[in-house]
Amino acid sequence: AITKDQQVLMKVIVEAYNRHQIPQDMAKKLLQEQYSAEENFLLLTEMATSQVQVLVEFTKNIPGFLSLDHEDQIALLKGSAVEAMFLRSAQVLSSKKPNCHTDALEERIRKSGMSEEFMTPMFNFYKSIGKLHMMQEEQALLTAITILTPDRPYVKDQQAVERLQEPMLDVLRKLCALQHPQEPQYFAHLLGRLTELRTLNHYHAEMLTSWRVN
């Protein structure tokens, strides 16, 4: 069973996750601006910037994060920002909520000058996240777990990060067992997505380089 302390932890994370989303004005821009490759690139860059700001605000609310060494906080965010963004985008795109303008977002991504080689694994990832039908609690916890990955480059005190990540993994594991009693592999599937995210993060660096050249 999930203990009271774990319930509190989950509530804090979920509330912070829901409170910190890309501003609606930004989402509306998806429909307003023009659809040239350059315009799409600029708009996606602007959205990514906003998403990083929102991600940092969410992260500040993860219990214990602000007590970590300041440079370690930056290393964790720098190492995970791209992965956290892919997770959030996957959730937005698979939710198909009308006010998120998901079709417009998908069209802009597809016509932004990004190479097929990168786009295919990215949309495959979005699809694989969609298939999991994650609950909000699972999404929020998985994002927190991604951010609190101890082995990011330049993290000095990995043990301090592990001490924050472990309780999140424990709650998520229990939550998965409770919510998906018919799917004992569900928790393992979620963790598998984290491995996929790492691969995407790696591609992303290469993709940015080729994008810049184009």
């Binding site: 910037t49 990083v52 605000e57 930056i74 965010l77 720098k78 920002a81 660096a205 940015l208 810049r212």
Partner: peptide, 21 residues
């Protein structure tokens, strides 16, 4: 963010500031 340097700048600023205010 178009570069890693840009990303770090955004993170540092966001860590110091407060979007909620």
């Amino acid at each position: 963010p178009a570069s890693n340097l840009g990303l770090e700048d955004i993170i540092r600023k966001a860590l110091m500031g407060n979007l909620e205010e």
